[in-house]
Nucleic acid binder design. Structure first.
Length: 271
DNA sequence: TTAATCACCTGAGGGC
DNA sequence: TGCCCTCAGGTGATTA
């Protein structure tokens, strides 16, 4: 389940292999994703070179000579670099073949992801223009979180998972960051004190940085650009551990549904 | 305007 | 072994 660390891991993995490489051919095997893959890129991209690979939230932005590919991995997507001779699997939707002999291959069994093309700056794209700050940037601070959460009646977990408030925090890392900061997921966002906002922003940054170092979390689908899993799941304190003892106080962890998402917490360590 | 809910999709896992 | 059902989850669209 790709969240920010998985997307960052993917960007770092593909970047050195495709920057400067020229597109020879594009193949769309199955255009059905959240939105259809634009067929125009089959004729547009060949002859262009990739010039940069960036990340904005959970979006991967690949810059070419005359436009950008905006890629979202959805729930089950992955981008891998393979040799062009490697045969595609069942759910490999899309390939970009480069003159280096490599192909950038997009796989997404559940088809919640998306591949879009824009010639405008990605920041102006409707999917990106309303996104909140990057959690690892200085813009995401105690004061910012405290200011935007005033009078909000949503739970804090729903609030930090909303990309308009801060990008890249999905269910796994929201659960882990809230545990790390000692805040129950069901607490109202508007009720957090400045001190607790500071703890939470610190925890979100800490958890995400740790996950990036470990190559992300592989629960079911995620593999990095080499086709290998991430290892952060071995560091999870609460996610998916309902009924198991808390690693800090040994009491059984609980779970509840918040906004249609499984939430895991320790009734003793989190208040 | 805000918050909640729905819909999309397929593989994994459990029960029978 | 095979069938059926439930669950998982990110996010745009829709509804309240």
């Amino acid at each position: 389940m790709p969240e920010l660390p998985e997307v960052e891991t993917t960007c770092r993995g593909i970047s050195p292999h495709i920057i400067g490489a020229c597109v020879e051919r594009v193949e769309i095997r199955n255009s059905k994703l959240r939105w259809p893959i634009p067929k125009t890129i089959v004729t547009l991209l060949p002859g262009m070179s990739a010039t940069s690979v960036l990340r904005r939230g959970k979006y991967i932005l690949i810059q070419f000579d005359f436009g950008w590919l905006i890629i979202h991995l959805g729930m089950s997507g992955s981008l891998r670099l393979v040799h062009k001779s490697v045969a595609p699997d069942k759910h490999d939707h899309f390939d970009i073949y480069f003159d280096t002999g490599n192909a950038l291959r997009y796989k997404d069994p559940r088809r919640f992801g998306s591949i879009l093309w824009t010639t405008d700056a990605p920041a102006n794209h409707k999917l990106l223009k309303n996104l909140g700050p990057e959690p690892l940037s200085n813009d995401f601070s105690r004061d910012y979180l405290h200011a935007i959460s005033r009078k909000k009646i949503q739970t804090i977990k729903t609030f930090i998972m909303d990309g308009r408030n801060v990008v890249g925090v999905g269910n796994i890392y929201a659960n882990e960051a809230l545990f790390d900061s000692g805040i129950r997921p069901g607490v109202g966002a508007g009720k957090l004190s400045l001190r607790r906002c500071e703890k939470l922003t610190t925890s979100i940054k800490h958890i995400l940085q740790k996950a990036i170092k470990k190559g992300g979390t592989s629960l079911r689908d995620f593999v990095n650009s080499d086709g290998n899993p991430g290892y952060f799941q071995q560091e999870l304190y609460v996610y998916g551990r309902e009924g198991l003892p808390c690693k800090l106080c040994n009491k059984p962890l609980r779970s509840k549904f918040i906004n249609q998402r499984s939430s895991f917490y320790c009734n003793s360590c989190q208040r």
